[in-house]
Write a protein that binds this DNA or RNA. Structure first.
Length: 271
DNA sequence: AAAAGCCCCTGGATGC
DNA sequence: TGCATCCAGGGGCTTT
């Protein structure tokens, strides 16, 4: 579920409130993708400094060490002073003096991992190969084009890989390519400078817009206060197979690319 | 180095 | 109603 917009909306919902809070207890449920890598009791007494985001990871800085969190496919975070008793899919609780941060993740592709610092081997393994932040200063159209020219894989899969630019998942890859008028199957290396530029702008636009709409709620995404997102209501192609294109009325097409669904308009995205 | 497949796991929708 | 199949916002790991 969570791509950059959902992760960022989640972060914005609790970062300010948890900053400065002392950790009172840590509860772990079923195993997530990786082990926590620290004894939960060792975190008690530490203080949360701030919450950052890198790609789809959340980085929770403590006065010593940090927690790396990932929501996987089905994860969501809640933060509140009076959460109900933990349910079967609540697999991590960070209980602080200001409230509890709780990870709910039915499929358990998500993760919570402790690292002493960002240079630790574990943190480097997870964060080291990430591309640039699409909403930051480092996302440059010319550099983006230069990177794309080195890749022969289909542009959709190159966007998804996250090693050139981070945060673009399955929804927003399809949406950005629609906005840019680019067929998802074209080799990244064949995009001209102007077309790469359009894609660069489309990625920024679609992600920023999705953040403003509170993300996309297709099944179960909700933010740290349980609120749904609304971007899905203005999706042009994602999950709209067979429905008319909002621009030209051609039925939206569905296909598989590397085990993931891709949606596109065969008319607006001719090549 | 890059690309393609394979998994991890649970639950909802669909079809017979 | 029951059961099988397919699909789902990700991404690390292994193999070509």
């Amino acid at each position: 579920m969570p791509e950059l917009p959902e992760v960022e909306v989640t972060r914005l919902g609790f970062a300010d409130r948890i900053a400065g809070a002392r950790i009172e207890a840590v509860r772990v449920g079923k195993p997530l993708r990786w082990a926590l890598a620290v004894e939960p009791s060792e975190l008690v007494g530490r203080t949360v400094l701030e919450v950052r985001r890198r790609g789809k990871y959340l980085l929770i800085d403590l006065d010593r060490g940090l927690l790396l969190m990932h929501l996987g496919m089905s994860g969501s975070l809640r933060f509140g002073a009076e959460l109900p008793a933990a349910g079967v899919h609540d697999h991590f609780d960070l209980v602080t003096a200001r409230g509890t941060l709780r990870l709910n993740d039915p499929r358990r592709f998500g993760a919570v991992v402790y690292a002493e610092d960002e240079a630790s081997p574990l943190a480097v393994k997870l964060l080291g190969k990430l591309g640039v932040e699409p909403l930051g200063e480092g996302f440059d159209a010319a550099a983006f084009h230069a990177e794309l020219r080195r890749r022969k894989a289909p542009i959709k899969q190159v966007l998804l890989a996250g090693d050139i630019v981070v945060g673009v998942g399955n929804i927003y890859a399809s949406e950005a390519l629609f906005l840019a008028g680019i067929r998802p199957t074209v080799s990244a290396s064949r995009l001209s400078r102007p077309r790469a530029s359009r894609l660069h702008a489309a990625v920024k636009e679609v992600l920023a817009r999705a953040v403003a709409r509170g993300g996309s709620t297709l099944r179960d995404f909700s933010d740290s206060e349980g609120r749904s997102g609304y971007f899905q209501l203005e999706a042009n192609v994602y999950d709209r197979a067979g429905e008319p294109c909002r621009v030209c009325l051609t039925p939206i097409r569905w296909m598989k690319q590397g085990q993931r669904s891709t949606y596109f308009c065969p008319t607006c995205q001719k090549y």
